[in-house]
């Protein structure tokens, strides 16, 4: 139980956190901007990994493989969007349907193999566990570019329409915004980011696995919420949009540092999922409970009772 070993493992946890941060940014787009908890991500994360590994092992250059993975993710999001908007299936269910379908599709992508290796010694991978500082650098570049693009895009006319769709769909429709189109666009963009993250993780850990996306949505939500709470605590009202996005990634990093601490403490990993769920529940519940406590009606009632 040596504290130095915890610090020595820190860079690895940070690298993993930043890469999952890309995924968390995708979750932010649906969960916070669009106000939908999109469960497609559990499937599209593995799709990103599978497409990347299959293409790389077939001799396709890494950047092209990543690009195709991103497009595959966008396609998955498009399917969820169509199920939801054109076919009128509730958003949660549409996501679950895509997720289940992607399980089979991912297996087909990897020609029936549940697990495919991509050997770091044979290909020029963008990042790998072998070179943790390099992985941090590469993933950081990805994150910075993505945050810049998201900042720019959500400020454009279409981006503003997208945000207003999430805030108030009825009013947005009244203003002439095609809200179904906005939902499909956001779901596609979100899953494109998730697939990108899956492709990076597959290279980082040296393999793609059919189960690699299992529970990804929870990690994404955990990152979004942890980042939000901490960001709000530090910057209060000064929290702007770029900071908000940055803190999503920081949330993911914190999540993986916590996992590192859990492993370092030799806590039974059987309870890891329960532990994650408890943390996310606490981070979700506390701001809400605090909000109700500060509710003006309740304050008025208290004042009334005091009289």
């Amino acid at each position: 139980m040596d504290i130095t070993s915890l610090f020595a493992a820190l860079p690895g946890n940070i690298a993993q956190g930043i890469i999952w941060g890309v995924m968390a940014l995708g979750v932010y787009l649906t969960f916070r901007v669009l106000n939908i908890a999109d469960l497609t991500v559990d499937g599209s994360f593995a799709t990103g990994g599978a497409v990347t590994v299959v293409l790389i092992t077939n001799g396709v250059p890494v950047p092209v493989a990543i690009l195709v993975a991103v497009l595959a993710g966008a396609l998955a999001g498009l399917c969820t969007g169509i199920l939801h908007t054109v076919l009128g299936i509730p958003d949660i269910l549409a996501g679950i349907l895509s997720q289940i379908a992607l399980y089979s599709i991912n297996l087909d992508i990897m020609s029936g193999c549940a697990n495919m290796a991509v050997n770091v010694m044979k290909y020029k991978l963008l990042l790998s566990l072998r070179n943790v500082p390099g992985a941090i650098l590469v993933s950081l570049i990805f994150v910075v570019v993505i945050i810049a693009l998201m900042y720019w895009y959500l400020g454009t006319e279409q981006g503003s329409a997208l945000r207003s769709t999430g805030n108030n769909p009825a009013m947005s429709r009244a203003q002439g915004i095609n809200i179904n189109m906005m939902k499909v666009i956001a779901l596609s963009l979100s899953n494109a980011l998730v697939a990108l993250s899956g492709g990076l993780i597959a290279q980082y850990q040296g393999f793609a696995d059919i189960n690699m996306g299992r529970g990804a949505i929870v990690i994404g939500l955990a990152a979004v919420i942890i980042g939000e709470v901490i960001g709000n605590a530090i910057f209060k009202k000064k929290m702007n949009f770029v900071l908000r996005l940055s803190f999503v990634v920081i949330g993911a990093i914190i999540y993986y540092i916590v996992i590192g601490i859990v492993l370092w403490l030799h806590m039974p990993t059987n309870d890891l999922k329960l532990f994650t769920a408890i943390i996310v529940a606490i981070f979700l519940a506390v701001p809400y409970l605090k909000g109700t406590a500060n509710n003006s009606f309740r304050k008025a009632a208290k004042r009334g009772a005091g009289k």
Partner: peptide, 10 residues
């Protein structure tokens, strides 16, 4: 499987 990477890195 992602936790395997965390563990081996540690």
């Amino acid at each position: 499987s992602a936790t395997c990477a965390t563990i081996t890195n540690t």
